[in-house]
Design a protein around this nucleic acid. Structure first.
Lengths: 210, 210
DNA sequence: TTACTTCCGCTACCCAGGTATCGGAAAGGT
DNA sequence: ACCTTTCCGATACCTGGGTAGCGGAAGTAA
């Protein structure tokens, strides 16, 4: 949402952008990505379509902005218990994914649609700027999670000879794989299994078994 | 590609479907998903647009059919060396992903686009039938890979108390995560790191270190 | 042959994302 | 006040995915 103020000419209607985002969020959660129409968003925001396009050049840009706003940056705590901290983090990620997964879908709980998540990934693939944007949105949280692993390694809770970035991929990768590819559920028992598998090989060799 | 023969009425032009798929594949690899237009496919296949839509009801269905055809089912060998066999399998997966990743993109090698892969995931999210279709395409190969892990566990090369399906997710999940989310490269060194991380925790406790 | 069925190609059309243009409105500079 | 700049809203339009309806072509069944 580029909000430059040129201080010359008519200023932008500050509230218009907010109303557009609210209308888009509401329609996205109710109707999903495909059924959300730009005309309806503009209409519901009380704004001309051109005003909307002046702020977000494509539907993808608008939707990514909406999703980015919905990500409230809950901090990751480093309590010293690596398993508990990782559980907290992965549950945050899984909750966000599961929420977007069923956006706009009826209550038929048995279909394996990736919903909005897949549309975001496709939007990032179509527009390079959106890719960097959404990666920046999650960068801080991801960096904290990786820092969690690094500090655990420093204090001897993890092996020191492994790449924490790769370990991180093996923690979150399966979640995205299930959401985007297989459609299988990503629930708390699954998260525990993932953490078990990742940490089992990451413990130092002299550690006593959990 | 539903090819029913009702034996009544004018039979379908057998060659038309083939020509459509060829034209679609060529245009997909050159132009990518967004720039591929149905009209151009029909035109290049020498076929009316309605004939195309009689076989594939949406652009997504057509593209998924094209991608499914491009997957030649290379068998997975179980040589007894679990690390070598997994390397073979993951390289197959990564090669396929990397090929589709850059479909339709120029030679600018530094952008992290997921390309066609993300569009396929989105197509699977939009149409439930396409989701089951593409999962069926990879089902055999995935089942062989999981069988690889199971047989390794049976002969004592892996722990027997772990869920091989979860272990499988931790092997392939990071690949899709990198392709679809982070855009980072998925090359052979990365595959080795993933296999290392997954197998390190999967070895039986009495095993001697590699 | 004739009747029936289904496909083909064609045209016309609907819908939604996105663009172009234009008169007018809301600011700042002088 | 007046000009300049930029935004707003409205309309018209282009494009591409997808649908509807038609006459005719290619087959089977009698």
């Amino acid at each position: 949402m580029p909000e430059r103020a040129p201080s010359r000419g008519r200023p932008r209607d500050i509230d218009a952008g907010r109303r557009i985002l609210i209308a888009a969020r509401d329609l996205l959660l109710v109707d999903g990505y495909a059924a959300l129409s730009i005309d309806e968003v503009a209409d519901q925001a009380g704004v001309a379509k051109t005003t909307l396009y002046r702020r977000w050049p494509t539907k993808d840009h608008l939707i990514v902005a909406v999703v980015a706003l919905m990500q409230d940056d809950v901090p990751i705590l480093d309590t010293g218990d690596i398993r508990a901290d990782l559980t907290d983090y992965l549950r945050q990620v899984a909750d966000g994914l599961n929420t977007m997964r069923r956006a706009g879908l009826p209550e038929s709980a048995d279909d394996r649609s990736a919903g909005v998540v897949a549309e975001i990934a496709a939007a990032a693939a179509r527009h390079a700027d959106l890719g960097t944007l959404i990666r920046a949105v999650f960068a801080r949280r991801n960096a904290m999670a990786i820092g969690l692993l690094a500090s655990a390694a420093r204090r001897g809770a993890l092996r020191t000879d492994l790449d924490v970035a790769v370990l991180f991929d093996q923690l979150v990768g399966p979640l995205y794989y299930r959401i985007l590819v297989t459609g299988e559920p990503v629930d708390h028992p699954y998260l525990d299994l993932i953490i078990d598998g990742a940490l089992r090989g990451a413990r130092p060799s002299h550690a006593h078994p959990a």
